[in-house]
Write a protein that binds this DNA or RNA. Sequence first.
DNA 1: TGTGAATTCATACTTTTGGCCGATTGTGTT
DNA 2: AACACAATCGGCCAAAAGTATGAATTCACA
Lengths: 142, 142
Amino acid sequence: MTLRKSIILYGVAMALLMGVLKFAEYRFFVHDLSLELYLGLVAVLFVGLGVWVGRRLTRVKVIEPSTEITRDEAKLKKLGITKREYEVLGLIAQGLSNKEIADKLFVSNSTVKTHTSNLFLKLDASRRTQALQRAKELQIIP
Amino acid sequence: MTLRKSIILYGVAMALLMGVLKFAEYRFFVHDLSLELYLGLVAVLFVGLGVWVGRRLTRVKVIEPSTEITRDEAKLKKLGITKREYEVLGLIAQGLSNKEIADKLFVSNSTVKTHTSNLFLKLDASRRTQALQRAKELQIIP
DNA sequence: TGTGAATTCATACTTTTGGCCGATTGTGTT
DNA sequence: AACACAATCGGCCAAAAGTATGAATTCACA
């Protein structure tokens, strides 16, 4: 996709260059415009092209994150973390207390505590802040 | 710094362009090389310049983090967070308990609690997880 | 159909955390 | 010197969080 686009654009650029050259050649016989102007025109055109290519090259880094998202579920299964536990983990990351989490999930405080305890076992943590740190390390939360 | 560099580079580029033009002019009288070759040369040169500029432009995003680091202190002052409090905040983010933080900083548990309490006031939080969330929002911790 | 995992809840207990007081010491500023 | 401020510490109490144990329910799936 990206490669094909690049090739097409390169072709277009080459065609444009040829056009400019032909135009210049034509003008040359007429002895109308100065050479400097042609060169300036070409320069501006290719600076533009260069900027575009440069941006393309650096934009590759932005595409990476999407790969990690798909890996998440695999990581969760490897750690034995269930959906509900992961849900609770997310709410902990948002800074909610057990009570607030319980209210949000329509369960009792006990249930949330059970989930967090299990989370701590699986994440090898003994505090919620530690669990968050571990979860970030394991890249299961942003 | 960056602006000055850009200006210098722009100057160099202009000088280069002038050189190319003079060279082209000279060659023009000799009627040796073709016009297409000059144009091609200029094109290649400015594609290079364009790539460089493009990377500069996109690299702005990469440079931002360092800018934020310098902004960090300004943010901290705006929030009234002291060095010691910020230190404690960092250790909380690493998942340490008050006791562990106290040991690491060679102070008493009371002192750490004082720092965290002040932090909570300044970050408008009432839990350490909430403080972390706020701190991330305010971009004073990664 | 029954088996295991996930989810739910409770109770009791310990540890950690947070809120609210006050107090001392050093440092730099006016 | 007087003052503001950062950093330090302690005590007390209440709330939140974490641990351990046991048990009921639901639900997928073999």
